[in-house]
Design a protein around this nucleic acid. Sequence first.
DNA 1: TCTGGGGTCCTAGGACCC
DNA 2: TCTGGGGTCCTAGGACCC
Length: 420
Amino acid sequence: MIALVDCNNFYASCERLFQPSLRGKPIVVLSNNDRCVIARSDEAKQLGIAMGERAHLIEQTMKEKGVTAFSSNYNLYGSLSDRVMRTLASQCPTMEVYSIDEAFLYLGDLPISDLWQYGYRLRALVLQNIGIPVSVGVAPTKTLAKLANRYAKKFKKEIGLHILDTPEKVDHALKVTAVGDVWGIGRQYAALLEKHDVHTAYELSKVPDEWIRKNMSVVGQRLVNELRGIPCIDMELEPPAKKGICSSRSFGVLVTSKVEIAEALTTYISTAALKLRRQGSCTKLINVFVQTNQFRTQDKQYYRSVNVPLPVASSSTRELIHYGMLALDLIFKPGYNYHKCGVMLTEIVPDDQVQFGMFDELNREKEAKLMAAMDGINQVMGRGKVRFAVQGHKQRWKLRAEMLSQCYTTRLSDVLVVQC
DNA sequence: TCTGGGGTCCTAGGACCC
DNA sequence: TCTGGGGTCCTAGGACCC
């Protein structure tokens, strides 16, 4: 059996953890630049605040209903996620961290009779150690575990646990799950299936293989088999190295000057290069893009991206910035209101398998040491303490985050003080 | 003023190879 | 008169996830 453990309203729960006065009150967490809603507490959901809703459109409602809004604080969520995952790992050695707030636990052949107790213990332990409520779904396949988890959230709220341990329970859960709520069925497939009179997960599990293969490829076939109780999606115990690394943001304000785009771009390149070094890789291809805001119909629109192959695979921030700036020279055109830019690193290779260049003049060993020193200082002193001059210091383009909570768990000066 | 950011996998079709 | 068979690689586009 496989368990899927999922934190309830994760970002909202993280914020509330350090502001207990907000328990039972509606809260929302906003996307970068405070633009739209990306997480809601149950109370906020009940008020009808939808996922993805634009913040400025519901400002009035939030004021009237006493909804507290937070800018997203990924340092905080990342740190609390690590703690949740550590607690789960202590209970199950074969675990896959699936996302910031979810993990699959492979329970092997733990006797069915023990599953309930095990599930209860997981919930209680995470609540006690970290203070974040979780829901647990247990089933023979990953897709069914996801479904069981959804069932627990919807129908077993008080206990937050559901186990599909008999064929009857599986069928029942399949029948009460809309086809669009199945893991792997997005908007397009949901519409296609509805058109063909397939409305529930149960009906989907009965669709002939031939039709599935033709219309939903092998991905759909795996999914349907999983609904039938045949495991087709393996556990990934080690997170695989990323094949592409991307860093991009929309600006807090519209930007027209090349200098400012260059500042933002070098900042994103620094972030991407750091990710690259953390997973022990180098990149051979850097892609840079700039774009205007497609929602501003009054503006002239422009999007362009360019690939720049590197002579030798690299993870040096310095070198990547150099090529990134060359790329920007190729695609920047004055006269536009730019809204976003970014960098994508692809053709990623392990750093111990880099093909040397015949005419390479860079001392790569030295460069690696320099980067290691920089990363070390930044890790201790805080990110961005050592950076490159091109990144600028005014950073007018930076994100807005006007309702940012503190980094309670990752910054010493932000640790809560309790008076008693 | 105002619509997130970062990923994965699969398929089809074309170019090209022997 | 007649035009193989078996591959690889690349790109663009489409689907999905949190």
